[in-house]
Write a protein that binds this DNA or RNA. Sequence first.
DNA 1: CTCAGAAGCTAATTGCATTAGCCTCCGTCG
DNA 2: CGACGGAGGCTAATGCAATTAGCTTCTGAG
Lengths: 192, 192
Amino acid sequence: MPRAGLNQQIVVREAARLVDEVGREQLTLAAVAARLGVALPSLYKHVRGADALAQKLSAFATAELADELMTAAVGRAGVDALRAVAAAYRSYARRHPGRYPATQRVPDPADPDHVAAGERAVGAVYAVLNGYGITGDAAVDAARTLRSALHGFVSLEVAGGFGLPRDLDRSYDEMIASLDAALRGWGSGRTS
Amino acid sequence: MPRAGLNQQIVVREAARLVDEVGREQLTLAAVAARLGVALPSLYKHVRGADALAQKLSAFATAELADELMTAAVGRAGVDALRAVAAAYRSYARRHPGRYPATQRVPDPADPDHVAAGERAVGAVYAVLNGYGITGDAAVDAARTLRSALHGFVSLEVAGGFGLPRDLDRSYDEMIASLDAALRGWGSGRTS
DNA sequence: CTCAGAAGCTAATTGCATTAGCCTCCGTCG
DNA sequence: CGACGGAGGCTAATGCAATTAGCTTCTGAG
């Protein structure tokens, strides 16, 4: 009986494919093992258990998302950067409906890669703000606003939380336009 | 052996208390049964199974949230209504960290109460928009923007997705101020 | 060639969900 | 008043997923 030749990365990537197909609720060691053609307990040689697999999946998906956001942001500024990052964010969630929710898990402090991926993703948001000249304490509030809008929209969309699928593209564009306006005037008329 | 005197509402309300204490991931028929002092299979006399309980919990939490949003909106308009509804929304999520995620489940079309609760919650959002004079097609986009921002913020907050808990109140105020500005000028400078 | 560790496996345990089928309480109707 | 029938609870049994223990075999370094 030849060995399957698994390692942690293969297991985690298979878990990522699985959740995109069946939803993150259905992530199960049994299903991952079946897809990899091994017995369930064999996975324990590569991951500590079901929760650890979910955490590694989160780290993987977060890194993937951060890469796409960074790629979208590079070489752009202002509204161009905002639009590009927002589009990349939504695109990732739509292409990976199971991985996207996994990115929302709080990074495990004991997993440096996970922490770094989270910081990279947030870094893309700060890069956008930088293009609007927003820095320092104000950037904290602006970043939270931007993250909230993007995450809120795509999580509602992916979950089917908006009624009809009609005109979602346009609604997203409108929201981004509002964000652009808000960021352009950030701080004006408020306690700086 | 006297009867426990359960009914569906009692079961669902106990489930609601449970998820607020231990998180929605830990919702289990076994735990609900234990808290109610009955054997696990007894619950099947009141709910169809674990998934049905989760759906009923969603309906219950959605109705509860809709009530609080409506109460906040009544008698107010414009930025006052926006602030009141936004505060009620966040308050609910913070007081009920397990119930809040349950409200994000898509209403079951086969459960009229669930559908009605969802419509009532969305109705509170439309009531706010109405106070800004936003109606018709434009309201669809504005409602999605508003829902995205509120849901995004509180879900990130409840999940611990923002780094430090520092100044969350202020960040929320800033976001609401941005929304107020966006709604006051809704449609201006964009394809109406 | 040897051998030690890594990678798989089977077996056994535990916990939750679900179904089947029994038993008893209690309100209603003769 | 008494019987009965359904509702509400229970125990027993099954199935699936997770986990742990301990065995076996491949494989690569010396």
